[in-house]
Design a binder for these strands. Sequence first.
DNA 1: GATCACATGTAATAAGTTACATGATTGC
DNA 2: GCAATCATGTAACTTATTACATGTGATC
Lengths: 188, 188
Amino acid sequence: MNTLSYGLLALLTRGPRSGYELMQHIQPIWQAKHSQIYPLLALMEKRGFVQYVPVAQKDKPDKKVYSLTDEGIAALREWVPEPTGDPVKRDEMLLKVYCIGFIEPAQARQLFEERMRMYQCKIEKYHRMLDDLGSETVQAVEAGRMEHPGFGSYILLKRAIGQAESDLDWCRWVVGLLQLNPTGSVGN
Amino acid sequence: MNTLSYGLLALLTRGPRSGYELMQHIQPIWQAKHSQIYPLLALMEKRGFVQYVPVAQKDKPDKKVYSLTDEGIAALREWVPEPTGDPVKRDEMLLKVYCIGFIEPAQARQLFEERMRMYQCKIEKYHRMLDDLGSETVQAVEAGRMEHPGFGSYILLKRAIGQAESDLDWCRWVVGLLQLNPTGSVGN
DNA sequence: GATCACATGTAATAAGTTACATGATTGC
DNA sequence: GCAATCATGTAACTTATTACATGTGATC
């Protein structure tokens, strides 16, 4: 049982999900490919933390819909108070920014403008997801009712938006700095 | 040559560094242990991207001080315009937040308060690092002189502070929400 | 006497990515 | 016809962590 396994259990607290759905929904929080998720689900099923029902679909391939068992819920509750690992962040762009003095100014601008587009897309996506949660959830969150399904999703989306906007502001600030010295348009 | 290898080359643009120093300085940008870094340095040395001089020290163990070769600089310049990988973020805490409805309110508060302490420490550390860069660097950055050594470090520190403050604000907001409904003090 | 910081390295394991594999349906 | 979405799985590989290994000097 590694962190990703507990993460899958956490996702299943919202209700039964197929492996494919779990793979999609965990992406914003924890990047993982289906090749990592399917074996973990099989293992957790064997250990009794989750169970599944095969669901036949016309027009789509069959799927396995997983749900939490009592043992799974117990495992989840045991995991939460355990010491929480430090966040791991690896962003290739930041390594490039570190040696920005070695970069052509035009390339530097491109690097930041690309990122700005990425963050704008993300922010829009997160706002759409917020809207999908509905006003009932918003009211529950504003009342501090953390037991409400959707409380976790809502505050996580708020965080993601805050982070993306902070980063976007930073990109704009740097692009502004770079334009003070338009070396790129003069050549080097 | 993987991303971490290029990251090490990027760090070496600031001047010669030992493997140990590289390991320490790369941490805020890209988490890696010494066991990963030393073999990569050895490999890059064999391939001619870096070179080292053994430096004997009294009172401390001997060290190998690495520096960039012309080939290393060339490799670095080739890497920069290549497509940049998406950032990878994995934070166990966010998985716990997702299933916050299954958590005891007291545990939830603890989770956030622990994080707030972590961010406060980080912010203080980053501010100290900013101060260490000196006013000369600040002036160069404000003038948009990206070729200045320290430009990259300065803007990366600014970003790190922005991200940490955004997260800290988020934690405070959530703790405020949790206090609206003090279920934890009544028991469950 | 124990732990920490410095300093480098290897070995074993765990975690994560890419590629291989299959197969239906829908849209371009 | 070709790519994309849905859906599951395995194999091969890369990347990252933990543990093993060694040794000094400083601090508690």
